[in-house]
Amino acid sequence: MQAQIDDDLSLIIALRQGDETAYRVLLTRYQSLVLRLARMYVGHEAAEEVAQETWLAVLHHIDNFEPRAPLKSWILRIAVNKARTLARREDRTIAFSSLLANDTSSESAVPPDRFLARATNGIPAGWWAIPPQPWPEMQSPEDAVLGAEVQTIINQAILLLRHPQREVIMLRDIQGLTAQEVCAILDITETHQRVLLHRARTKVRTALDRYFQEGQNNDQ
């Protein structure tokens, strides 16, 4: 943590002095993240525009930046705000806040009819009525590039998510940010972040499950 702060500080100082190397370090670290973040809201070309606006804002505000928050969160938060603004202007997405309001409704992760509604044969209610089936054995995803089909299933499932869920799962599970960073970037509480992540992960798992079960049925 302290190392992170020191590292941030030296980059900030260097950048304030107009050091291009410091800027390149930041670009290398965060530019692809900024772009992918922007693409959650706008198309490919507009994402480039968001990235430019983001870096311009970083440069223009670096003198005022107080390194209380990590530099990374600060940059990504700028990017999210720029992307949201552009998306709203282009009317591509509905305002985040209005979706957020809808999203607090209760929503069960797995269809309730997968569970026993009442005790049956000594098994209490709430236990599996239709238990999940194992997925086919696969190579560990760490060793192998995921199959194109599986990638498509995952990407489609994520695209179908409502906006706040999509933001959280992309930042957490695809970009690998921490819960703390995601909360800082999206300005949400830890609990809300976790609820959104939970629903999003559940839906992606369900999509994969459907795909794997169909595959198995076809093999028979």
Binding site: L27, Q31, Q52, E142, L146, I154, I169, R201, R205, L208
Partner: peptide, 24 residues
């Protein structure tokens, strides 16, 4: 599911985009 999402291959960035950012 979480591990698989972490293993998705990222799109490549354009070198052109980086040049614009350096000009900036």
């Amino acid at each position: 599911t979480v591990r698989m999402m972490g293993a998705l291959t990222a799109e490549q960035e354009s070198a052109e985009g980086t040049l614009v950012l350096l000009d900036l």
